[in-house]
Design a protein around this nucleic acid. Structure first.
Lengths: 210, 210, 210, 210
DNA sequence: AATGAATGAGCGTTCATTCAT
DNA sequence: TATGAATGAACGCTCATTCAT
């Protein structure tokens, strides 16, 4: 028997290490954004929350802007995955699918991350072009899921009507963030509001006129 | 002929001066908040936008917190006035009143001030207790107007149902800020969206079941 | 008969009012100096402690320097009065007089005012010429009292010896401020220390050799 | 023969640089404290005296408080070394030791550093808890040296008497700072005052009664 | 005798960024 | 990859002082 020569650390190792550090940093960045808000979002806070030196953080994310953009990418990516999984997990009946969709998104508003993250995103989108882009893309994908189901529920709708309905529905849901989100006064009414919302949305979808 | 009563010396001259300066500052503060966002909202920026020295600004608003709170008070006050005037200007038919109300609020979302101010407010409310309070109070007054009309449209509704419907409606409208606001891609769809919204809301109000 | 012209408010009235305000301010200044130290001694703090506007304070004391000098004058004046009264109240026997003197000054060190005021004075005297002058004058008068008694106790002493002994005694007593002053760890040992001090000082006075 | 242990690479190069900068800053801080007094002791003054940017100073001493505490540590450390060296250098005869001790401390009062530093320290100790602590510790060590010699001179003394005598002696010496210190009017009388002091202190030590 | 508005400098502190190692 | 030293600007705030009223 013989001892194996100690494996030269595969070149990927460094990349892995780098990726690990980057992820640690992104995770810390998210928590700073959520706990402290963008107006308190600083490289130093993130570095300290990540247990990393400022210098090292800036090796991975050279400027604050890059860090911010990466963070938005990262966070938004998760919501896109959520939409995709909701779409996949739904059954056959389009109305059932729709109800599940609305319920899923609505309930997500209750989570601290969503409650705290989106208002920051909306504010940022008003002041930073790159955030605007990312947000618009995300909501477009969000609506794409909605649109598919809407079309199935009422196939007679014009494409532009479908677009509008998807916008109305998604915007209406988003608007509840500030009221039924984590720690908000109406949080406990979430279920009943879901019922109102679902019925109203279905009514709109099924009306020919819009 | 008779001597005029000695003109009350404009005793408030100083106070007037102070009020003028304060208003200039508040106005500048609003425009900084809107143009640059809260994360760029600094005493120095506001002072410079107002054409006032930092020292003088802080004579009138001793701390940044006071300035911020005054600004929120000032801005929110304007929305409260808007709600009140909408309520007063409405006619007799409750459905017509409701339609006017929804239309009024929806259209206000298109204004730059509203588009830019509210996301800042929502973000702030997540991180500053005093902003939370002001925002909650404002929305409560907003809903109070809605609730009156809802009750008239469907008098059979339980009070708790009225509350929930008012919340659903106001939240849904607010959610459109990010999509149909000033400079947003869906701005031109505002009218059609108002139609969808109004009908859906009326449907919800007239359903017994919520 | 004729009505008397309404008495012009005796000119002194205004002066009295002014004096009252000045005294209020000086009192407040003293308490700021004692509670907060000279490094926190600001016109604004004094004005606020006195319940007076900054503008009015500066009507009475045009600059911070004037206020400071007046404060030192005022405080030191009280100590001079104390020395004078101690001298007067003493009996005939010079040793008894001396003991009473040492005891009186020593015990005064326990008072909060003295404990807190003198270190500020010493520091100030190192950096502000006017404070140096005032302090030197005060200690000269202090020693003058001591010297009279010393001479009576030991008439054979040369004048320069008397001077030196007075200095040694006064300096030694002053040095205890930091240790037995108000709130200091050795405060409770004051009486026993007075005994040691008195005996040592008398020993020095009665030695021919200094 | 054996291989030399691999030279530790001067790993501390960076640290050395940092240490150098820190020392430059501390030195500048001391001179600001002495020349300008604590009430003029500002980070900016120290930075400028050290030829260092404010930002860099605060990299090494993150807050003013840390800088101040470090400065006190640094300065007080030097006095502790002085006490230790005086204790070690003294000969055998306890009275001779005592005389040398008193003379050494007394003469140190003449130095500019001591004259200017201690009044600041006393003032600080009245207003900043950490300064109080440092000062009390220093004087305790100071007295420890005195107590040893006192016990040897008069072994019959109770411990509490030794404590009190050490306090009386050290306090009396300290009190001379303001009168015989650097640039003070009585500076030239230092020697003669040392004689009076030494004799009086010895008298006190040799009395059974305290 | 008193007030209130305004200025401009300085304060302690945080920050994004650069760079040498 | 990672660290630590340094810069320079901006921040919120306090201050002494001036001046019109």
């Amino acid at each position: 028997m013989f001892k194996l020569a100690p494996m030269k650390p595969a070149l990927k190792t460094q990349t892995d290490k780098a990726r690990m550090t980057s992820e640690t940093i992104l995770h810390a960045a998210e928590s700073v954004m959520i706990e402290a808000g963008y107006h308190n979002f600083s490289i130093r806070r993130v570095a300290s929350a990540a247990g990393v030196t400022v210098g090292n953080l800036q090796y991975h994310f050279p400027t604050k802007d890059v860090l911010l953009k990466s963070l938005l990418d990262h966070c938004i990516g998760r919501y896109l995955k959520m939409f995709a999984s909701i779409r996949n997990s739904a059954g056959n009946d389009p109305r059932r699918q729709f109800e599940a969709l609305v319920k899923g998104i609505f309930e997500d508003l209750n989570s601290k991350n969503t409650t705290m993250f989106f208002p920051e995103l909306w504010s940022l989108a008003n002041h930073e072009a790159s955030a605007t882009q990312l947000m618009d893309d995300m909501y477009a994908q969000y609506r794409a899921v909605l649109k598919e189901v809407i079309k199935e529920i009422n196939p007679k709708l014009k494409p532009s009507s479908v677009d509008r309905l998807a916008l109305f529905i998604s915007a209406s849901i988003e608007g509840h963030t500030v009221f039924i989100g984590h720690g908000k006064p109406w949080q406990k009414q979430t279920k009943k509001l879901i019922k109102i919302a679902t019925q109203s949305f279905l009514f709109a979808i099924e009306s020919e006129e819009f």
